[in-house]
Amino acid sequence: MAAIDVSGRIADRTIICTLGWAPGTRLHIRECSGVIVVRVDRQGVFTVTGQGRLHLPVAVRHWCGLSAGDRMLLAASPADGLLVVHPPAALDAMVMAVHADALGGGQA
Rank of each mutant, 00 (worst) to 15 (best):
A79L: 04
V48P: 05
A89E: 14
V37C: 01
R39Q: 05
T18D: 07
G69L: 10
A102F: 09
C32S: 10
G65N: 08
A76M: 09
G105I: 13
M1N: 09
I4R: 00
V6M: 07
C64E: 00
L56Y: 08
C64L: 08
V6F: 11
V45D: 15
S7A: 14
V95C: 08
A108N: 12
D5T: 00
L19P: 00
V6G: 04
P78C: 06
S67A: 11
I10M: 02
V84L: 09
L19Y: 04
W21G: 06
A79F: 01
Q107D: 14
A59M: 04
A93Q: 04
P23I: 00
H28W: 05
L66N: 01
A108T: 09
M1V: 09
I29N: 02
A68P: 03
G50L: 13
W21Q: 05
V38R: 07
T14E: 08
G34M: 09
A3Y: 10
G44M: 06
S77G: 08
R30G: 07
S67M: 04
D70M: 10
E31S: 05
T25Q: 10
A102W: 14
P57A: 07
R71A: 07
H62F: 10
A22N: 13
V37T: 03
R61S: 03
A102M: 13
G50Y: 03
V85E: 02
A90D: 03
V58R: 14
L103T: 15
R13T: 02
T49P: 01
C32E: 12
L66G: 13
V45G: 14
A93H: 06
R26C: 04
I16T: 05
R13N: 03
V40M: 02
G34K: 06
L73V: 14
R30E: 15
L54G: 02
A3P: 01
V95W: 01
G105S: 13
V35K: 01
G106Y: 03
P87I: 09
A100C: 12
G20H: 09
L83Y: 05
H99C: 12
I29R: 03
I4W: 07
W63D: 15
P57G: 06
H99Y: 09
P57E: 05
P78Q: 10
T14I: 10
Q51C: 09
S33L: 15
V45T: 15
S7F: 15
